[in-house]
Design a protein around this nucleic acid. Sequence first.
DNA 1: GCACGACATAGGCTCGACCTATGCTTTCTG
DNA 2: CAGAAAGCATAGGTCGAGCCTATGTCGTGC
Lengths: 308, 308
Amino acid sequence: MLSVHQLTCFLATYEQGSLTRAAEELGYAQPSVSEQIRALEKSLGVQLFRRVGRGVVPTTVADTLRPYAERVLGAIDEAERAVQSVRSLETGTIRFGMFGTARLYAGAGLVADVLERYPGVRVELIGQNSTDVQEELRRGRLEAAMIAVAAAASEGMTITPVARDELVYISADPERVASPVTAARLSQASLVMPETTWRANDSTRIVLRQMLHETGRNPVTRIEVEDVETAVELVGRGLADSVVPRGVVDQLLPRLAPNAGWTSLRPRQHDILAIVHRADAILSPAAQLMIELATRRIQEITEPVHRR
Amino acid sequence: MLSVHQLTCFLATYEQGSLTRAAEELGYAQPSVSEQIRALEKSLGVQLFRRVGRGVVPTTVADTLRPYAERVLGAIDEAERAVQSVRSLETGTIRFGMFGTARLYAGAGLVADVLERYPGVRVELIGQNSTDVQEELRRGRLEAAMIAVAAAASEGMTITPVARDELVYISADPERVASPVTAARLSQASLVMPETTWRANDSTRIVLRQMLHETGRNPVTRIEVEDVETAVELVGRGLADSVVPRGVVDQLLPRLAPNAGWTSLRPRQHDILAIVHRADAILSPAAQLMIELATRRIQEITEPVHRR
DNA sequence: GCACGACATAGGCTCGACCTATGCTTTCTG
DNA sequence: CAGAAAGCATAGGTCGAGCCTATGTCGTGC
């Protein structure tokens, strides 16, 4: 097989018209270059230089090969520069996991932050729900993510809480949000809940289940929908009440359910938002950037958690 | 330095999503591919694959690198194919030496012959005079040539005579070409001779010098010009006579000096046309082709020399 | 004819490329 | 849930490629 090194020696020799000078240019001893050229000639089955007394003279085959050799070396150079520019976040793709709700009220701003600093990059925010984001992380398809973590911390993952988002009760009936909602009242409410597909693992639901479980009650939902928008809209129409993070309330209530109000649970409950990645992972600059920016964004909107 | 081999392993791994399968595809053991990938990652300073339980997953850097890696391998492939097609004379340049006079009456036909067989090639016929062609040969800048050789056979050159071209006396005066010209008459003639720059080494002049020397006379030229055409035209105008090869007479006399006639010298003198190349050279297919075609062309026009 | 320049050859060293064997971790399956 | 299977990493050993220095050979130029 034709090697890069051989082509480098070939070009140097072609340009210098001399093995000795080529060797000097490349920082090798003369026999080394000589050997490379001979190997190249052998592997191609043609003579590239005529050895003639003083110096060497390229054959027509060498004339033909030269532009191709240059292109190969150029392509290698480009490859290296491309990789380095990805390293320095000048280009390439930054992929970051973020479960639905968090993305909902920090996604656009986060993407804007990234693009402002690094106009050349592509940005992908991946994930429907914290559960499948965790699965992607586990499979190595995502490097890092910001998700809501329930008590269930999975094995082999490093979880860094960065904020907590209060879960609040929302309703179109002013009476029902006049005072904090206890577990007893919650268990009697007629609720619409989003994230049906992930109902078993959804962090909000896990928190609610724990809250009710402590008082010996089971959660009951009247309506199941997939996305929070629909749930909020249904609350606005007075068809059911719901429990959603404060971030969602700030973001969606004025738009989708302007007549609805909200109140805390009693005791207060929270979703914990955390940065998650494989415990053994060495984070890339891109991932570190996303973690930093996402953390800042989320902490502007929710209550920061300062730990350590 | 980034090596072709590393890129090959990288691409195979990327496509297979597995070091083991990549190794199978390439015919290596799994640790070998593993080592190459690691070396590539180290030399680039980035992680290309996340190792995750079953198989490996490309990082975004790997996504970026892939098209570049493919281009590098593609360029190498092209280089090899280009060289092979030159080998088989499908493309590339064929360079052949031929001194002025011979080129004058066989050049166009010879180029036509080559192009008919190999439409893709470039053809270069190099050389002003036999002397500088020999110099080019000696320096290795030409592989082979057809030239007129004087008695002076140079060292280290293989000379194969293929034809001889009679040197004839031409004049616009019918009387002077009524009978063969002897050395005595020649030494008194008023001559125009071409190839001024090469006068010391020009084969025709060497032949004439020897002819006259044997009779104790020295050659005298009235007019010196560079190219044969001018010389013949001057003869046509009756300003001088000349001695040129028969080939030139056939080619130029009707056109440039229609009123002129020619006669042999007595004794007859000849330019020897020969194939010349370095004694140690292994001739390329292109050179062999040119030798064969040039020989055939010349022998159609002049008197063949069969030797060996 | 002699010295110098330039490529080839010889011999030796080091390191990279490859292999087999084996260990560790994850994933699949009964 | 335990054992098998799959897949990557590690270890250790062999072989050859790449590189060096020293020296030979040949052409060139003074």
